[in-house]
Design a protein around this nucleic acid. Structure first.
Lengths: 190, 190
DNA sequence: AACGATACGGACTGCTGGTCCGCTTTGTAA
DNA sequence: TTACAAAGCGGACCAGCAGTCCGTATCGTT
């Protein structure tokens, strides 16, 4: 895409930054308290490098997030049913939601950081558009009227901060959360 | 409550700040670009005053929000059905959601500011707990299993940033949004 | 070897939320 | 009216952050 040629040191630094950021974000009190300067230091590069490569804070978060979420995306895009294409909407919708929730449970800090966005709403991030598209298509195959809106509504139910709230404030175990979500999703598509 | 005695100038300033903040938040590009210093200047008070009265940025936003949302809260808490108590869950749930959505449409900037929170998630704010409680109670009166989770899920469908996205990026008129939400809510409680 | 192109890094800037404390206003009591 | 403590005020001040800039170092190509 935008990658014409990559100089060796540039590529190396890029990886170092991604790794350092991933680790810093995951550790301690989430990405909120992690400054760009810290990331730069941990990666052993200068602040300038970091900003040139990733544009701004959100760019960095998005990059780390992309790397982490590739697997789920692939599973949904071309994995076996019911998560992948091929399954009936009634089964695929809950499967997709569950996969997304499971991912967010495993990557709470990162997801939170992405949705906090900092600059824009989570809805401006490209990855949301993708999930919405997939969800809407799956919903079209069900009795739900207005798949577009329903897709938004269902995805909203797994917003990172809600997940975080349920897990922390309400002390709900991940397993239980997934069951409850599944029941809710079933009700919606049923 | 915490108000034992209020000195005349203190009360005057409090009002001035609330008014100035409300106006500043509403105008221009939302509350994101409004600094505390600007609010102080517009209200004709010093920064110190502002922070002493409201604690921090979020405190100010919460205060402005509370003032604005009193009406809806009252209508839900003790107004006539179907919004107020007394109506069957199947009717009250959509009514509450619609009222909330209508309010957010009318106070987009403010709602956005509140949910952006800045410090904590929207779920830590007391007003969310209240809405969730009302919603859960209304849902208990329907066939929906797990009213607690469903309440979270339904409220998530009217998150300020989603509303903003639908209104701006998808250019969905308020009226249409409310219809779609009503249809979705009906499906959930039906 | 040599020479543009590319990338580096950290000092620097501008702005923000929040604190601090000497000074002013208010309300009360004499 | 005066006196005086408590309550409140304001803006200089601080620390920390995202993001910029540009002289210098590295790369890879001829």
């Amino acid at each position: 895409m935008t990658e014409r040629k990559a100089r060796a040191d540039a590529a190396r630094n890029r990886e170092a930054v991604l790794a350092a950021a991933d680790e810093l974000f995951a550790s301690g009190g989430g990405p909120r308290g992690v400054s760009m300067e810290q990331v730069a230091a941990a990666a052993g590069v200068g602040k300038g490098t970091l900003f040139r490569r990733f544009g701004d804070r959100n760019g960095l978060i998005r990059a780390v997030f992309s790397a982490r979420s590739e697997a789920v995306r692939a599973a949904v895009e071309s994995g076996p049913p019911p998560l992948g294409p091929g399954a009936a909407g009634r089964e695929r919708v809950p499967a997709i939601l569950d996969a997304l929730l499971a991912f967010k449970l495993d990557n709470r800090h990162l997801s939170l950081a992405l949705e906090e966005a900092g600059a824009g709403s989570p809805y401006e991030v490209e990855h949301y558009g993708w999930w919405h598209g997939v969800m809407r298509d799956a919903l079209r195959d069900t009795a739900v009227p207005d798949a577009g809106f329903a897709a938004h509504a269902l995805l909203a139910a797994v917003r990172a901060d809600l997940v975080e709230h349920l897990a922390s404030a309400e002390e709900m175990p991940g397993r239980e959360m997934r069951e409850r979500l599944a029941a809710y999703a079933a009700k919606v598509v049923g």
